[in-house]
Design a binder for these strands. Structure first.
Lengths: 194, 194
DNA sequence: TTTTATTTGGAACATTCGTTCCAATACCTA
DNA sequence: TAGGTATTGGAACGAATGTTCCAAATAAAA
């Protein structure tokens, strides 16, 4: 009996992500969202509750898609060390493909809202810990295989790698220079060698 | 003949910096600024032009004070390598002293506004290049003295160090854990050794 | 003390904000 | 095809936004 929704929720979340990335949370108005998504206020409020609800859904969807990209890169090889390298390489590609320099939604809103929006802060921490865990697991594997130096613990290296990846994104958003980003990656990953 | 200004412009810029850091540019209202600074709208508009003008002055003042802190740390020793270490140590202290987790104004607004505010983007790039230059000069000196490994060029190390410092700030703002930040610093600086 | 230039407080402005509401529409089921 | 339910568009809301304006207050100079 009910009429089906005329839009694809995922597409809406992706368009919202674009807007929030470019203009920030507070810089994006409901009008912007209505225009960009093409649907009406009623539909947005009915589906997502309010602006903050849409934003959080958009943020979580972005997080999921990032994780998907990451797994895709890891699937390209069996070598833990190469997986790490592929993650960094992919991030560089991602930065360079972002012509408007919108940056990474997760980092952007953590910096914009982290101090005042506890929900956002919690998502950021959760994401960070998850990423550190991913890296430290890869390091552990790599060390067992003899690919990665045992000079530092997996935990320390996991933290270092994630922190370096964030630094790369911040640097790359301000100055999307391929050579510089590759150089930074090279040095960040050099602690895995020898 | 003229009546003197009843307030200290620097103090106003510092209070504005606190607000912009905590709530972001778009999240900070003129009302917030009036309340926090204690002066009236007229005085703000007469002195700084408008909200954006006050914001830019506040951002540049913050940049200057950061540079001052940096020089202070460097003055503590003659060793270039130790200067670099002191900069990182001071940054960790700075992060841990920030109980509300407001973060670094420069990074925050670069992430919030970088894509839409060209003036902010330009300040961010200028700051980044200046910092990279500071680091690479220190590296060059350190390499000449034999304190720092010559495995990588000063330019590459300068970029790496600044990027790592940004990563440290992003990580530390979400999770201000002293041990983790020290560990990250240790690995970031390990490329200077041997 | 008087004059004068400047700052100051607070009211007022138009605009934009996020949100709500309702009538009209459109789809699915029977 | 007819009925009923959920979606949809757009008008409308009050609150908050950044900004302007002017009269009153004030400190320095004459």
């Amino acid at each position: 009996m009910p009429k089906k929704k005329q839009f694809n929720e995922t597409e809406v979340l992706m368009k919202a992500k674009e807007l929030f990335s470019e203009k920030g949370y507070n810089g994006t108005s409901m009008d912007d969202l209505v225009q960009a998504t093409g649907l009406s206020r009623s539909s947005i409020y009915d589906t997502f509750g309010d602006k903050h609800g849409l934003f959080l859904k958009s943020l979580n969807h972005y997080r999921g898609s990032q994780q998907g990209d990451l797994e895709k890169q890891c699937a390209r090889t069996d070598s833990p060390k190469k997986k790490i390298r592929y993650i960094f390489d992919y991030t560089i590609k991602d930065i360079l493909a972002d012509k408007e320099c919108k940056g990474c939604l997760m980092i952007n809103v953590t910096m914009e809202l982290g101090a005042v929006d506890k929900e956002v802060a919690a998502v950021a921490v959760s994401n960070m810990e998850e990423m550190e865990q991913v890296f430290s697991s890869l390091v552990k594997e790599g060390q067992a295989k003899g690919e990665i130096s045992k000079k530092f613990t997996p935990k320390a290296l996991g933290r270092h790698l994630y922190s370096s990846l964030m630094g790369l994104r911040v640097t790359g958003t301000s100055r999307p220079d391929a050579d510089a980003l590759r150089e930074i990656t090279k040095l960040a990953l050099s602690v895995l060698d020898e």
